[in-house]
Design a protein around this nucleic acid. Sequence first.
DNA 1: GCAAATTAATGATTTATTCAAG
DNA 2: CTTGAATAAATCATTAATTTGC
Lengths: 109, 109
Amino acid sequence: MERLLENSASPQIFGGNAPQLAADPHAYGEKAGEGTRWNPTQEQIGILEMSYRGGMRAPSAQQIEDITAQLSRYGKIEVKNVFYWFQNHRARDRRQKEKRRNSLGLSHM
Amino acid sequence: MERLLENSASPQIFGGNAPQLAADPHAYGEKAGEGTRWNPTQEQIGILEMSYRGGMRAPSAQQIEDITAQLSRYGKIEVKNVFYWFQNHRARDRRQKEKRRNSLGLSHM
DNA sequence: GCAAATTAATGATTTATTCAAG
DNA sequence: CTTGAATAAATCATTAATTTGC
């Protein structure tokens, strides 16, 4: 499906060099260690969630870099992974809340 | 903060009798079977937001009346509710946007 | 127990918006 | 009115959990 990726959903935070990742199922394992998506460790997830619960929602470029540096202690990670993590977490958190809100009886009348 | 509400924020749209609307937080709900504020249903919110996203920002008196008529299908509502909804929604959007902008330089470590 | 098959989570991309420069 | 900057929403794609048949 060749995503081709024109890097649109990211500010100048990670410089615009979008990674060209392997859409081809055969492409893993052999080569240059590239093409697999970031797979966060438990420590990384823990730190990210603590930050989020502590109120961090849309960290600045600087904050993202700091977090990335901290997380890289526990495994390979890039700035864009942290950026995406917050984006996805916000969106999914919000969707859960909406769901909850709807499930409370608000539909009478 | 004494707003006292000189009906400055409302055009001739609802007949000059600006609803007296409680600048005072305590003023709702207590009185004679009237006075509870509008509590929009999910359908009403959905329609309003669709209108807003469709580009409607400061609807004319006629447009407001049309919308009110449409929304009244889903629950009790008045023209002033619609007028205020747009006013508040514009302001809220603007504020959220500002906040996001600020968060780029903001750090609160 | 163990993989293949299926489903659930979640990382990464694309699309549609927003406000407000110009 | 048009465009720049920056998402958030929606979607796509891949990985992990799990279910299932042996």
